[in-house]
Amino acid sequence: MMIKIENLTHKYSVGTPFEKVAVDHVNLEIEGGEIVGVIGHTGSGKSTLIQHLNGLLKPSEGKVYINGQDIWADKSKMRQVRFDVGLVFQYPEYQLFEETVYKDIAFGPRNMGLSESEIHDRVLKAAEFSGLREELLEKSPFELSGGQKRRVAIAGVIAMEPKVLILDEPTAGLDPKGRNKILNQIKNYHDQVGNTILLVSHSMEDVAMFADKVLVMNKAKVFAYDTVENVFARSEELKAIRLSVPQITNVFHRLNEEGYPVPRNVYTVAYAKRKLLAELEKEGKLHA
């Protein structure tokens, strides 16, 4: 599923003194099958941009193509676009409304007009992907804990089996354990299904660990769109727009500057550990 954004501009409150350009002439092409991390400051246009991908917002200027199809060309196909491009909002647990978890997850598939047995299969599959135990399905979503609610909401979108899944800060407000759990589940889901995932995040660590590519938004424009390595290699530029690189990268830059023989292109703790151990082993052999 390829996403192509052409010259997209979005303005809020047009014609009033509060007019604001949230997305400014953005051009972007996202190939299918990758996890794309989307980073940027609050107000940089991330949320506005992603709401264009499934037609919740209408561009003030420019076009959005999903698989070569201009999504605003035929408004009657908009619902299909929304099934193809699933969007999980920030704090999605506040959208739950059904009596049971099962019914809430089934809301999306039911809107698609699927058969009961198909809905049943999809709900079970989505629940499994999101790490919800089966006995939770008959509970009321309002009895669950915050993290469980969030997973129900994510499952509700996954159950539509979207070809593109967009998650707007899926880990906001969760504890570190809950964060990792949700991100790992998303990663596993991606590995099994192989769809495109856009992950909006404020955490450089999360992006470095889970994403293949990074989209950096700054002041309503695309600042960079490249692989994780290439984007974080531009750490000076990122710092200039007051964004950071993963902490571990900073540590390794500093070590490198202090004269230790460590590489600068280290973005995850796991990779750092491997590199360091290899380096220490070498030293050990040298001294031995």
């Binding site: 709401q51 929304r82 909002f89 506040y94 959208q95 809107n111 698609m112």
Partner: peptide, 12 residues
Amino acid sequence: KIMSAQKARGAD
């Protein structure tokens, strides 16, 4: 916000 979220799940 809630309307957008439900629309994203295909609510008509």
